[in-house]
Amino acid sequence: MSGHLDQIRDQQKETWDRFSAGWKTWDELVLRWLSPFATAMIRHAAIEDGDRVLDVAAGTGEPGLTVATAIPNGHVTVTDLSDRMLEAAADNARRRGITNFETKACDAGALPFDDATFDAVLCRFGFMFFPDVATAARQLTRVAKPGAHVCAAVWGAPERNAWATTIMTTIARHVDMPKPPEGAPGLFRCAAPGMMAAAFTDAGLRDIHEEDVTTVMVHDTPEAYWTFMIEIAAPVVAGLAKADDGARARIKTDVLQLASQSMRAGKVELRSTATVIAGTRA
Rank of each mutant, 00 (worst) to 15 (best):
E231Y: 08
A110R: 07
G186V: 08
D80F: 01
A152T: 15
T214H: 02
G61D: 02
D114L: 12
A21M: 09
A89M: 02
T170Q: 09
G126N: 06
P181F: 12
K179A: 12
A259M: 06
C106I: 00
R264I: 08
D91T: 07
M217L: 13
G186L: 05
R264C: 10
R95Q: 06
R84E: 15
C106N: 00
P178D: 11
G50S: 03
M196R: 11
P178R: 01
R173N: 14
V213R: 01
E182L: 15
T227V: 10
I8S: 14
D91V: 03
G246E: 15
D10K: 11
M217T: 10
V175W: 09
G22N: 08
P222I: 10
T77W: 05
M85F: 02
A148T: 02
T214Q: 03
T60Q: 08
D220S: 02
V154Y: 08
E48F: 14
A58T: 06
E87V: 11
V56K: 00
T60C: 12
R95G: 03
R18G: 13
T117M: 14
A247W: 06
A70Y: 07
S272T: 05
V236P: 00
F101P: 07
L256C: 12
A68P: 00
V236Q: 13
M229K: 10
P193Q: 04
V268E: 06
T103F: 07
G50W: 06
Q139G: 05
V175P: 00
R206I: 04
G183V: 13
A46H: 14
P222N: 12
R94Q: 11
E211I: 10
A105D: 00
M41Y: 00
E211D: 13
T141G: 02
M229E: 13
T275Q: 04
P112Y: 02
F113D: 09
R52E: 15
I230L: 06
V268N: 05
A21G: 08
R52H: 13
M1S: 15
F118D: 03
D91Y: 01
A21Q: 10
A137N: 07
A198P: 13
R264K: 13
A152L: 09
D55H: 01
A40L: 03
T215K: 07
H219P: 03
D80Y: 05
M196G: 03
T99Y: 03
I171A: 14
L29N: 14
Y225N: 09
R138Y: 02
Q11Y: 02
A184P: 06
